[in-house]
Amino acid sequence: MEDVKEMTADVKKNIEEKKPLKKVLVICARGTLEDVYAALIMANGALSEGKEAKMFFTFFGLDAITKAKADHLHTATVGNPAFMRSLPTMVGGLPGFEALASHMMKQEMDKLDIPPVTEFLEMIEAGGGEIYACKLAADMFHIKKEDLVDEVKDIITVGQMYDLAEGDGVQIIYV
């Protein structure tokens, strides 16, 4: 019981002291255009603020770091209430609608000079960020290191991913 009280006191002390954020670990588990870009923007933003940034791609998020799929991601139209707020839900399931929505999203991103996924990954690595793939997901989808973009530092286990998050001032962001 004393241990719990001490831990609670330590947590309260950390909150009160507002320890500065030193690094982020961004976990990307979904492979949709909007989810992958959210993860890339979070990591890049941390780097631009002088923070350490590491990225861990797992399950369908692996699509973002495979050579074959990285620059061919799509916007989720079915089951995405924010996207479908002005259209009937069934429109999202029509043949070709996802491709159209993805094309339109990419056009808007081009207007804002947002780089393609592979270029964004290059920028993150060049800025000192580290990019990792999940071993379990890679094994499950039969993905090898040579299938991944060159910026991927390694394929690691979840335990190794937790090791990346050790230390003070760490924020884990799950996208």
Rank of each mutant, 00 (worst) to 15 (best):
D139P: 09
P95E: 02
D63H: 12
F83P: 01
A133S: 14
Y174N: 15
V26N: 06
A133F: 07
Y132R: 04
E16N: 08
I173W: 04
I172H: 07
F120T: 09
V117D: 09
E119M: 08
A29Q: 04
L21T: 01
Y162P: 07
L121S: 06
E108L: 06
C28S: 12
N14R: 14
I173P: 02
K19F: 04
P116E: 03
T157S: 15
P95M: 01
A82N: 12
E16L: 12
S48I: 00
A64G: 15
P95Y: 00
P95Q: 00
A137R: 04
I143G: 10
D10L: 12
L40D: 12
D139N: 15
I143S: 10
F141H: 10
P88Q: 11
C28H: 03
R30D: 06
A68C: 01
I172F: 10
V78Y: 07
M1D: 13
K51E: 01
A138I: 07
A38R: 03
K144D: 14
A165D: 14
L164G: 14
E122P: 00
E108S: 15
A76L: 13
K51Q: 08
F60W: 15
L40H: 07
M161G: 14
M123S: 11
M109I: 04
H142C: 10
D113C: 02
A43H: 06
K67G: 14
R85K: 14
I143R: 09
L62H: 07
L100F: 08
G45E: 05
E122G: 09
E119G: 08
L136M: 15
H103G: 00
N80M: 11
P81G: 06
D10W: 03
P81S: 08
I27P: 09
T8D: 09
E119T: 10
G169H: 05
K18E: 12
M109W: 07
G93E: 00
Y132K: 06
K23H: 07
P115H: 03
K153T: 15
E166T: 06
H142V: 04
P115N: 02
I173C: 09
M7I: 08
F59E: 05
A68D: 13
E17S: 08
P88M: 13
I124F: 03
A29H: 11
K145D: 13
